[in-house]
C-alpha cells in the first residue's frame, strides 16, 4: 500500500468521510434549530469535470475547520461549514474518488456523467448531487466567520 505526504493511503477507503467545504450561505439552510441541510448545488462540479473534496475520516469535527479555513482563505470567502458524505455512497452513484494531494488530504470526485446534450448532462448531475446532498451531514462552522 502506498501512502501520501499526509500519511493517508493513496487508495480512498469505502468507509472514509469526504468533506465539501461550503463557502456560499445559500448552500445550506436550517429548517429548524439544530437541524441543517446542505443544498444539491453544493455538490455539482460545474464548471469543472470533478468535485474538489477533503478526506477527513478519523478527524474530530472540531478539527475540520483546520482544513476548511485555508480553502476559504485562499479564495477570499467565508467558511460556512462542511458537507460530509461517505466514500461508499459516492461510489454507489457510479462516481470515482482519486487522491490529489497538493493540499494535504485533498481528493477529487470524478466520472460525472458526460452527455452530448448539455441539458441531459446537467439533469443527470443534478440528480446525483441531490442524492449526495440528501445523505450528507452538514457541520456548521459559523462561529468563526
Amino acid at each position: 500500500m502506498s501512502f501520501l505526504v499526509s500519511g493517508l493511503p493513496f487508495e480512498v477507503a469505502e468507509e472514509e468521510t469526504l468533506a465539501r467545504f461550503v463557502l456560499v450561505s445559500k448552500y445550506r439552510s436550517q429548517p429548524e434549530p439544530g437541524r441543517w441541510r446542505v443544498k444539491p448545488p453544493a455538490f455539482i462540479p460545474d464548471p469543472h469535470d470533478d468535485l474538489s473534496v477533503s478526506r477527513v475520516g478519523g478527524l474530530p469535527d472540531s478539527e475540520l475547520e483546520t482544513y476548511g479555513r485555508p480553502v476559504a482563505e485562499t479564495q477570499g470567502k467565508p467558511l460556512y461549514g462542511a458537507a460530509l458524505v461517505n466514500a461508499a455512497l459516492v461510489r454507489s452513484l457510479n462516481l470515482e474518488i482519486e487522491a490529489d494531494e497538493g493540499p494535504p488530504r485533498h481528493a477529487n470526485i470524478l466520472r460525472w456523467p458526460q452527455e452530448t446534450d448539455p441539458k441531459e448532462q446537467k439533469a443527470r448531475r443534478q440528480l446525483i448531487a441531490t442524492e449526495l446532498a440528501d445523505a450528507a451531514r452538514y457541520l456548521p462552522i459559523e462561529d468563526s466567520n
Binding site: 445559500k26 439552510s29 429548517p31 441541510r37 443544498k39 448545488p41 455539482i44 462540479p45 460545474d46 446537467k122
Partner: peptide, 19 residues
C-alpha cells in the same frame, strides 16, 4: 428556496426532508 448554481443557473428547490 432560491439557490445559485456554479454554471450560472438558478435552482428552485423544494426540500421537505430526507428523500
Amino acid at each position: 428556496e432560491v439557490v445559485p448554481e456554479a454554471d450560472g443557473s438558478v435552482a428552485l428547490i423544494w426540500d421537505a426532508g430526507r428523500r
